[in-house]
């Protein structure tokens, strides 16, 4: 009996200390990786140009769609913009821009000055739709495939590495 208690106690402490050691080398930062692999079934976004809605119906013929959340007031969005311009040339990829909590005129100016990489443009005035996409700060981008399954999520501005990765994924087809 005593022996069992001794062994379990020792194992218990060793277990705790080992887990502490493992977690030292982990980052405790939050990410939204869990959205990857999930199907975005009910996409419904207000169009930027008119009163209509953008839904899964509009996107279903695309091989890949990159949903990009942006705003004219967001400084990092300017940083990633050249990469989006480059991606807009990709043949297997269409880009859906969601203008986030922005003023219409500012958004239009932004696109006039820096170019418009978006094949579709939607708006989310109050930011409510973005919650359905698991967005918590812009810029964020979500890459989905033909079946609306999330392949990858990019939090923060896209960089060169992300650009190449997206190109690689879309060109595999």
């Amino acid at each position: 009996m005593q022996k069992i208690i001794k062994i379990t106690t020792s194992i218990f402490f060793i277990f705790i200390l080992v887990v502490f050691y493992i977690s030292l080398n982990n980052t405790s930062d939050y990410d939204t990786e869990n959205l990857v692999g999930i199907k975005l079934e009910k996409i419904k976004l207000e169009s930027f140009e008119n009163k209509k809605y953008l839904t899964n119906e509009n996107l279903k013929k695309n091989n890949f769609t990159l949903i990009n959340f942006w705003a004219s007031w967001c400084a990092p969005c300017r940083v990633e913009h050249p990469f989006l311009m480059e991606l807009s040339q990709e043949k297997n990829l269409k880009i859906l821009g969601v203008n986030f909590k922005d003023k219409r005129n500012n958004a239009l100016n932004f696109l006039d000055n820096l170019g418009n990489p978006y094949h579709y443009l939607a708006k989310d005035d109050q930011g409510k739709q973005s919650i359905g996409f698991g967005i918590y700060g812009i810029p964020e981008s979500i890459l989905i495939d033909k079946d609306f399954i999330v392949i990858k999520k990019f939090v923060g501005p896209l960089n060169l590495e992300d650009l190449n990765e997206i190109k690689k994924i879309t060109n595999l087809l």
Binding site: Q126, G127, K128, I131, Y136, G137
Partner: peptide, 23 residues
């Protein structure tokens, strides 16, 4: 509140918290 440090959205006034409250 995902963009804050250990706060609930009730305690926060960040953009994210405001949006989430509306939702």
């Amino acid at each position: 509140c995902l963009v804050c440090q250990g706060q609930s959205i009730s305690d926060s006034n960040s953009d994210f918290a405001i949006t989430l409250k509306i939702v």
